[in-house]
Design a protein around this nucleic acid. Structure first.
Length: 271
DNA sequence: ATGGTCGGCAACCGA
């Protein structure tokens, strides 16, 4: 069975539901993972997703901030929500797929929204940066995020870190900018290395090539200088590495009307 | 080197 799965920081699912519909109608992934939905579960536009054919929904929303969701054409076996740093922030949700979806060997999917970390890259001066670093440490320490051997796990989301030199438009100029500081990039790499994970983008695209999924709103023209960063990630466990048949970053979505500052990132697997 | 723009929600906070 072919499973196509998209991650997208939507920056308010209610405001951009028409863009989500446009995307789903053309790309038709089986599963869509959203971050920054910015609404409580009761306000999530469920009916719209159901009409689009996405009948299975797992929500972890909160009022005004953060919020993650998984919407799917195929049914889940189970859902789970984890908290990090002893905060009630809605930054994680996971589901599993199995027999109900016609998938013989179980598949676990985690959807994350890692704290952005504020503006000052010093945990002593900036509590938000401290929170981000502790969040990454907890991901690394989290046993369920350590796939081994035959485990079929997928981890996606807005991880708010651009780990490699060519994940940003200027490595030199961003070394002290939150999202690309060495302390963050090392912690993200440690989280990846804590399990048998494969970073799909960098498995498929040479390290020498620039890859971005986010372009700031704070520029009158996002295309000038192409000042992007790769903040949105898809990891698959080693057992799924050879199942990956396609990987796409829909850069064009940054040009849509009233866009999110992030674009959809999609992986296709033969499961 | 600095400031720039969004969204939620009703003054700023978070990104």
């Amino acid at each position: 069975m072919r499973l196509s799965l998209t991650t997208w920081n939507i920056n308010s699912v209610r405001l951009r539901i028409d863009l989500v519909a446009k995307f789903l109608k053309s790309a038709r992934p089986e599963v869509l993972c959203l971050q920054e939905t910015k609404c409580i579960d009761d306000a999530f536009p469920l009916k719209r997703f159901k009409r689009l054919g996405y009948e299975h929904v797992a929500l972890n929303g909160q009022k005004g901030y953060h919020g993650v969701a998984i919407v799917s054409k195929i049914p889940f076996e189970s859902k789970d929500i984890r908290t990090f740093c002893d905060k009630l922030d809605s930054r994680h949700i996971s589901v599993s797929f199995g027999e109900k979806a016609g998938i013989a060997k179980p598949l676990v999917l985690h959807n994350f929204y890692v704290p952005a970390g504020g503006d000052i890259a010093d945990p002593a001066l900036n509590e938000k940066f401290d929170h981000k670093l502790r969040f990454l440490d907890e991901m690394t320490a989290c046993e369920p995020l350590h796939p081994r051997g035959e485990d079929r796990h997928i981890l996606v989301g807005d991880l708010n870190v651009a780990p490699h030199e060519n994940d940003v438009w200027s490595h030199k100029q961003l070394l002290k900018v939150v999202s690309h500081t060495p302390v963050e990039t090392e912690k993200l790499k440690a989280a990846l290395a804590a399990g048998e994970w494969v970073d799909v983008a960098r498995d498929r695209i040479p390290m020498s090539e620039k890859v971005y999924t986010w372009w700031s709103y704070r520029s009158p023209d996002w295309t000038v200088g192409d000042r992007g960063r790769r903040l949105d990630h898809i990891w698959v466990s080693r057992a799924l590495k050879d199942a990956v048949s396609d990987f796409k970053i829909l850069r064009d979505a940054r040009n849509w009307e009233r866009p999110s500052d992030h674009v959809p990132v999609t992986v296709t697997l033969e499961v």
